[in-house]
């Protein structure tokens, strides 16, 4: 589904990604972790072309992201993305947030888009808040709306960029629950997160990054039982026992 080959990127002269290669198969859940500044958010933003890259290639469902001939908006419409800071549109009601791209990008009728939006809101348990504005919701609720908004586009895969990092601890669970359910339904997911509980529960593979490199790419059970590299051992020790 997602194939990243030899991906390198630099800001000015500073390399942020160094020859990263990995794949995410259809239905697979891959967790990307690593210390801050390791390039994991940049990597995931490259997958739907939000960040340009200089070397290497990424294909998503057979479409090359870096090819100048690729219709990026069309590709992005099929790749759901959830951001650390939710990024709901604050000037629109929750309903309109869900309907906007369905109407403008997929060309759905307003009624159809609204109905689809409400079904997904129901699924994340927020249908009662459909007519509120994002600022009236808690962080956890906003992130669940953001997931519903991405799902409303019927994506072939979902990217999550630290979806729980900006949340108060008591709200993390409600967002992870939605993500776990999604993973169990067979959604292809690439998730940048420090939530190792989530990774243990649903991830098929864990990618560990440091200084712009993929240091370790292993089945989840193996990664947690016996991380091969010292850097991954140190990282796990720090985040699991603090």
């Amino acid at each position: 589904m997602i194939e990243i080959r030899d991906l390198s990127k630099a800001y000015g002269g500073t390399p942020v990604l160094k020859a990263c290669s990995t794949t995410v198969a259809k239905g697979e859940v891959v967790v990307v972790c690593g210390p801050s500044g390791s390039g994991k958010s940049t990597l995931i933003k490259c997958v739907n072309g939000l960040e340009p890259f200089q070397h290497g290639s990424i294909t998503v469902d057979g479409v090359s992201v870096g090819d100048p001939k690729t219709d990026l908006p069309r590709l992005r419409a099929r790749v759901g993305m959830v951001f650390q800071h939710f990024e709901l549109f604050p000037h629109m009601s929750v309903r309109k947030n869900l309907a906007l791209a369905q109407i403008r990008v997929l060309g759905r009728e307003a009624d159809e888009a609204d109905a689809r939006g409400l079904r997904l809101l129901d699924r994340v348990g927020l249908v009662a808040h459909a007519d509120k504005h994002p600022a009236q919701l808690s962080g956890g609720q906003q992130q669940r709306v953001a997931i519903a908004r991405a799902l409303a586009m019927d994506p072939v895969c979902m990217l999550f960029d630290e979806p729980t990092s900006a949340l108060d601890p008591e709200m993390i669970g409600e967002v992870l629950d939605v993500m776990v359910e999604l993973a169990r339904e067979g959604m292809t997911m690439m998730v940048v997160t420090h939530e190792m509980g989530f990774a243990r529960q649903v991830a098929h593979r864990v990618i560990f990054m440091d200084h712009g490199e993929i240091v370790e790419d292993a089945p989840a059970a193996q990664f947690f039982a016996a991380p091969a590299s010292e850097r991954a051992q140190g990282f796990l020790a720090r985040i699991l026992h603090h």
């Binding site: 069309r74 992005r76 951001f83 403008r104």
Partner: peptide
């Protein structure tokens, strides 16, 4: 208007013009 708003609009498949008209300019 924060950069993330443009990212979110583009991630949903909106073109740059659509992101400007529907997301950035109203805010």
């Amino acid at each position: 208007v924060p950069r993330g708003q443009v990212w979110a609009a583009q991630a949903l498949g909106l073109t740059q013009t659509q992101a400007m008209v529907h997301v950035v300019l109203p805010q």
